[in-house]
Design a protein around this nucleic acid. Structure first.
Lengths: 351, 351
DNA sequence: GCTTCTGCTTGGATCGATCAAGAGCACCGG
DNA sequence: CCGGTGCTCTTGATCGATCCAAGCAGAAGC
């Protein structure tokens, strides 16, 4: 310390030059011990008022901020939250993810955390997690792709790694890790009711194949809304791949066979297919046939009449997730339950 | 150490339980000193072959990975790269950013770095940077929004903070920090030439207002392509805000006044406006009038005939950026020049 | 046989923070 | 006058890795 302090006396300007100031530098300037400075930062209540102010002034003058690495080492926590971004899938789900990441970063900041992004091997859903965990690089994870029936949740659980899932544990309903999800069924019920209220009697469904629990859940919302009005859902549904072409084909077939006046879709991508079919047949979306998508993506906003779409409350999702994380990382840890949020409907020209 | 080692003898199973193994644990198990283990990890060449193998086996058996915090503290580097994500702007630029982040994360991983996301106050372009810098939380930054004439570059430079910019220093051409950018002019020249080759003689431009250097740069590419063919660009250009409506209005006016048969736009958003106008007039994109956008966003891919669009080589951008970062952080630091990459054209139904 | 030279290995110090325990002081009741 | 009780602040140890300089072999040279 001697050498160091000799080179940075109290007369030193506050403008940062060379190495950043350390706790010891602040201590010397304020004429107190290191521990007192540490307390001033972490437990201000312990100090006498005048001492606290003296230390705080020294901190301000030197522009001191605790060294993360040192603090992390001592406290065994990094205040980082790991988020694995999946392989670049150029689908509309992408945009959702982007909005979510934004929200997560901002919410985390307010809670004193930063988000660490990482990528893994495409074929191994677990890669990346293990290294970060063993090297104590992150305090916890946010897991997003729970829908693949993928082993992350169980694996992380067995390692006692703190994590919160965005998405229900579809495969294992009895799982007792915290999760936050959006109620897709409620969203589609909302969308369907919206069309029914506008006078539509025959509202069709275009969703994903049966092996997708999310798709089945959303479909259930559509069915529920119809049945609540005493309407039949028979013959009004299609289950296809999540592509524009599939949506176009499915809607063409449904128009021919069942003559629906409205479509509720499991995704904006499928809805775009419907719009394509309508255009090809000279039908005007919103006037002749109503269309509702899901995700409120970029596309829904810029497409010509505007696409009505179910919008996930991702800001709220982020808030709930961070709240759950704070619980997990608190002392003592508090393990919350699952949280299910209700989406809203962004109404545009297509309905 | 004594207590700790007593509780985790050599017979310890490899399955992680409780605290992760430390370098000292590995050393004891392999019957060597800590430094030898450290060398086995960081400078394997220094060890005799049989010793190295013994150590590596111990590492594998214990599942040892160096503690990040401890390593960071000692080496004064975190192997983290900071990336500030701008306020959630729901524009097509969003999608570009998303693709870029993906690429950056993957490329960084291969170079041994992770990406730390952070947010700042919306009104202060510098907030967030300072804290991370002073707390030595990141080794370097990637700066993305250089177009606002914003002070980040200069500020970071004056603090001697290592950073690489995605985007040219438009305001300060003589700036000597490393940057990587995409040649917008070349992209638009490519797009325009593409239309000219398809027989179009009158190709119009719809771009941003004059205060955007990026917009002017892209416009220059369009102009260059026309002039190269001895064609005039007079009366064929509009400068408007980056919205669908503006694009629609501008294209309508241009169609009335100058009867172009093709449009090159500064963004996919504007191009969507053109498509809207064409639809309203009963014109078929691609057959009657050609349209080219910029960014190859989600929208370009799912819109009905498919929107031809200039695609930025973001994967390559990420590679160049990480390479520049490695230079900056190397010993001795190597400061590279600016790198300008040429985009490609994703041809679809609209042309 | 003794010295010198590599080359691997070793204990100790260090990075900058926090934890745990102790020391100095004023104030209180006995 | 003394021991106890807070309150405030200080000292020494510690987290787990890497840097440093010294130690200790074995091989080569005289």
């Amino acid at each position: 310390m001697g050498v160091r302090n000799a080179s940075r006396g109290p007369g030193r300007p506050a403008v940062p030059t060379g190495a950043p100031p350390t706790l010891a530098d602040v201590a010397e300037r304020a004429g107190v011990s290191r521990q007192t400075v540490s307390n001033a930062v972490n437990n201000p209540d312990l100090l006498r008022a005048d001492t606290l102010q003296r230390v705080q002034q020294a901190i301000a003058e030197l522009g001191y901020l605790p060294n993360r690495a040192a603090r992390n080492l001592r406290t065994r926590s990094s205040h980082l939250i790991g988020l694995r971004i999946s392989a670049a899938q150029e689908g509309t789900a992408n945009a959702t993810m982007d909005r979510f990441v934004h929200s997560l970063v901002e919410t985390s900041r307010d809670a004193g955390y930063h988000v660490l992004l990482f990528a893994g091997e495409a074929d191994d859903p677990l890669s990346g997690y293990d290294d970060l965990l063993r090297s104590t690089a992150v305090d916890a994870f946010v897991v997003t792709d729970t829908y693949l029936g993928n082993p992350q949740a169980g694996w992380l659980g067995s390692r006692r790694a703190p994590f919160v899932a965005f998405g229900r544990p579809w495969d294992a309903p009895e799982a007792h890790h915290p999760w936050v999800d959006v109620d897709g069924a409620a969203g589609c019920e909302l969308a369907t009711r919206h069309l029914l209220e506008r006078g539509h009697q025959r509202v069709a469904w275009i969703g994903w194949r049966k092996d997708s629990p999310i798709g089945e859940d959303r479909r259930e919302g559509w069915r529920r809304a119809l049945h609540a009005q005493g309407l039949s859902s028979a013959g009004l549904a299609a289950r296809v791949d999540d592509t524009v072409t599939s949506g176009a084909q499915a809607s063409a077939a449904l128009l021919d066979d069942a003559a629906p006046t409205g479509f509720v879709c499991a995704s904006d991508t499928l809805a775009m297919g419907v719009l394509q079919t309508l255009a090809a047949r000279g039908l005007t979306p919103g006037r002749d046939v109503a269309v509702v998508g899901f995700d409120d993506s970029q596309v829904a906003q810029v497409v010509t009449p505007g696409l009505t779409s179910v919008r996930q409350p991702l800001e709220q999702v982020a808030i709930e997730i961070v709240s759950a994380l704070e619980g997990l990382l608190g002392h003592p840890p508090r393990v919350g339950d699952g949280v299910l949020l209700t989406p809203t409907l962004a109404v545009r020209g297509s309905s």
